[in-house]
């Protein structure tokens, strides 16, 4: 598997990373090498194998529908880069929700 600079740009868009042209140039061969290495997994015949998400898989872990104390608004907003009207402020949103 080798990734072209354009593919690297596409992945960077999905990952929302602003890469410089230099980074794209550097990353293309690096990512290709890593993927080339990782592709060894395809040598394993595993068609009928169930994938594992968790090594030890408990199931049906739930909590009762009982309120717990929330954090204070000040605590939650304390880390925010920009706050306005007790809300997290961001510059104008261009894209619609996915």
């Amino acid at each position: 598997m080798s990734l072209s600079p354009d593919e690297v740009r596409h992945v960077a868009r999905l990952a929302r990373l602003a890469l410089t042209d230099e980074e794209v140039t550097d990353l293309a061969p690096q990512l290709s090498a890593i993927l080339g290495y990782a592709e060894q997994v395809s040598e394993v015949a595993a068609d009928d194998v169930t994938p594992t998400v968790h090594p030890l898989a408990p199931s049906d872990v739930t909590r009762p529908d009982e309120p717990r104390p929330s954090l204070s608004r000040d605590d939650v907003l304390a880390g925010a880069p920009q706050v306005e009207q007790d809300r997290f402020a961001v510059p104008r949103i261009v894209a619609e929700e996915g």
Binding site: V61, D65, E66, P69, S70, R73
Partner: peptide, 30 residues
Amino acid sequence: GCPTTFGDDPNTNVCEVCTGQPGSLPVANA
């Protein structure tokens, strides 16, 4: 465990989980 009340003051029914603070984990509501 944050309440689901409609119309409360902004960011008052929030915690580390529903604001996606680093390290927070979800547990499903039965």
